[in-house]
Design a protein around this nucleic acid. Structure first.
Lengths: 192, 192
DNA sequence: ACCTGAACACCGTTCAAGT
DNA sequence: ACCTGAACACCGTTCAAGT
């Protein structure tokens, strides 16, 4: 009774990510993953509790990736708070266009019970930029406004919900500016 | 060969809506619908092309319902453009809380090939309020900003994505005000 | 003209049997 | 200790056979 290992958790996760990129979450089936790593579906359950756990693992990897992208954009941007927020959401849009299925997995609301600590960390770049802009008291409200808008816009853009014509990129940049300027105005109004 | 009709398209659609409300889109299976209307699953295909068509039918009914809710809120609100937008998104939030699965169906991005005319009509209340506020040139960009933010916020709220504490309702109202005020400021800046 | 059981091609998942 | 085929409970969908 030897026991030759024919695959690994990392290989399984990599195959799952490939399938997500190629055909969305619907294409990420246990059978497809098994085929790709050269094994039968039941064998996957030696390394992964069930499909939900595998999807969550891919979700966390994608969330960490987007987090890194936004952090890098925030650092590249100047010290101006408004510009920083615009730079972060533009980076998020680039990511959404480059990896639409990953973006959809992160924000589509399918994964709901993921590690809270990882989620807090990935929200941090925007919270930090908002804190610098509007102060600690309103930082959370501001971050929720920015995140909700960007995530909502990009999900609508990816799913083709903008059917009334017009320049979608311009709408995005203008929206980013409106929100950033509103936060600046809120601060200026309170600190005369 | 008589032909007793044991159900109807309306009854099928009503059962589908009930199942959506009770357990989300995942509970809306052809078998569950069939059981509820007192028929076997294959019989449904006499009235409905396939599950996608049935889901789309429910989707259109929900979109029309939300549309009516937002129109009523817009009419109830005063003539002030900013207040009107706030009233519309607050009405959308009430709807999302009262019928979370319907709201998720409308904006969750599952239905993607629905009747474009119905979608344009349902976007109209917000476009009209934005037109009154920022003029025709920027009305579409403004409506996209408002819709993306509201839809993103409510989807995140429904899926429990706001895990950092704080008052979520306050964040919503403050976000609505920030965006409405940004649109007013944009107009005032252009028309001195 | 509608309804049905049986069947098919898929899912995810379990488990006893192989090595 | 890992892998497998067979099996189970679900899906959506098709279709020949019933009335």
């Amino acid at each position: 009774m030897p026991a030759p290992e024919r695959t690994s958790l990392d290989e399984i996760a990599a195959a799952a990510l490939e399938l997500l990129d190629e055909g969305g979450l619907g294409a990420l089936t246990m059978q497809a993953v098994a085929t790709r790593v050269g094994v039968r579906a039941p064998s996957l359950y030696k390394r992964v509790a069930d499909r939900t756990a595998l999807v969550e693992r891919v979700f966390l990897a994608c969330a960490a990736e987007l987090d890194a992208v936004m952090r890098a954009a925030a650092e590249r941007a100047g010290s101006d708070g408004g510009d920083r927020i615009v730079a972060i959401v533009v980076a998020a849009r680039d990511y959404a266009h480059a990896s639409p299925h990953r973006y959809h997995l992160i924000f589509g609301g399918v994964v709901t019970d993921a590690d809270p600590a990882a989620l807090e960390r990935s929200a941090e770049p925007i919270v930090a930029a908002c804190r610098a802009l509007v102060g600690p008291d309103r930082a959370l409200d501001a971050a929720r406004t920015v995140t909700a808008w960007a995530q909502g816009f990009l999900l609508m853009e990816l799913s083709g919900s903008f059917r009334l014509g017009g320049d979608v990129e311009q709408a995005f940049l203008r929206g980013a500016r409106w929100i950033a300027d509103a936060l600046v105005a809120d601060r200026d109004q309170r600190l005369p």
